[in-house]
């Protein structure tokens, strides 16, 4: 997997990924374009995501402070944490949107993001939205295949504002998938959906992940969602990943599985919501 290092330009370009976490002032590295303002170091690595000593400040307050994270290729990781703990910030750093950081971050070149809101351009029809920025031949064919895969083949020419919440979110997922990412970043993609649509969306995400096998980092506040989908659940607090919980239960996951139930109680307790089963 071609992986490149995002890091302040001041680092030496010796071709070797420096993951030792030397903190450097980052100046004005605020550009959001993944192709710009980063020292690009191609390297072969066994990990899809490698973060060392990451630090991100907002107005002098460090939201992320010395965070380390490794995600294997094809691994599904759920990132849990109370609101404001910095999990969305971490996701934005991994996406390359937020580069105003110190530390070393290496992520796959091919990565895609789906946000909590679908963020479709309302003035472009659904398939044009999915095709946005897509290069190479037969873009439309690939787009149609992706829309078919998320079950939106009947809304290809619809305006985004006429889609239901679930449909719009599926279109956003298709837009991420059509790029065949090695890393898929999901920022609470089911949070604004109704309960039934959310379950269907989670099933779809599980299905797509098994078929395309990208590494996934899913930011969520829903413990059940994490337990239904992820190989590992990470709990973030105080600017670092404070807990790393492996989920070995067989797929498809059954919520009533005793192992899942025990993990659920454990994770909820870590998040400060003790359940009767845990106490």
């Amino acid at each position: 997997m071609a992986t490149r290092l995002l890091r302040p330009v001041t680092g030496s370009a010796d071709g070797e990924p420096r993951l030792s976490g030397d903190l450097q002032p980052t100046g004005d590295l605020q550009l959001t374009g993944p192709e710009r303002a980063v020292a690009v170091t191609e390297h072969e690595s066994s990990a899809a995501v490698e973060v060392r000593g990451l630090r991100r400040e907002f107005g002098g307050r460090a939201v992320i402070d010395g965070l380390d994270l490794t995600v294997a290729p094809g691994e599904f990781v759920a990132l849990l944490g109370r609101s404001g703990c910095g999990k969305s910030t971490l996701l934005r750093v991994l996406a390359g949107i937020d580069l105003d950081v110190a530390g070393a971050v290496s992520v796959p070149r091919r990565r895609a993001v789906a946000f909590q809101e679908p963020r479709l351009l309302p003035w472009k029809r659904v398939w044009r939205n999915v095709a946005l920025g897509l290069r190479g031949e037969d873009a439309r064919g690939r787009v149609l295949a992706a829309l078919d895969e998320v079950g939106l083949d009947h809304r290809v020419d619809a305006w985004p504002l006429t889609l239901s919440g679930g449909e719009a979110q599926r279109a956003a997922l298709a837009r991420a998938l059509v790029r065949e990412p090695d890393l898929l970043l999901l920022d609470e993609p089911c949070a604004s959906l109704d309960a039934l649509t959310r379950l269907r969306m989670q099933a779809l995400i599980a299905d797509l992940w098994e078929r395309h096998a990208p590494a996934v980092v899913l930011v969520t506040h829903d413990v059940d969602e994490a337990l239904a989908l992820a190989d590992r659940a990470l709990v973030m607090s105080d600017g670092v990943i404070s807990e790393d919980v492996a989920i070995h239960a067989a797929r498809p996951r059954r919520p009533a599985d005793p192992e899942i139930l025990a993990l659920r109680a454990h994770l909820l307790e870590l998040l400060g919501v003790p359940t009767p089963a845990a106490s």
Partner: peptide
């Protein structure tokens, strides 16, 4: 937020302006 999302799709600057 739309500009940001479009940025993650790898649009070039001119494409961002146009689309």
């Amino acid at each position: 937020r739309l500009v940001e999302a479009a940025g993650t799709l790898g649009l070039r600057r001119l494409e961002l302006v146009r689309h």
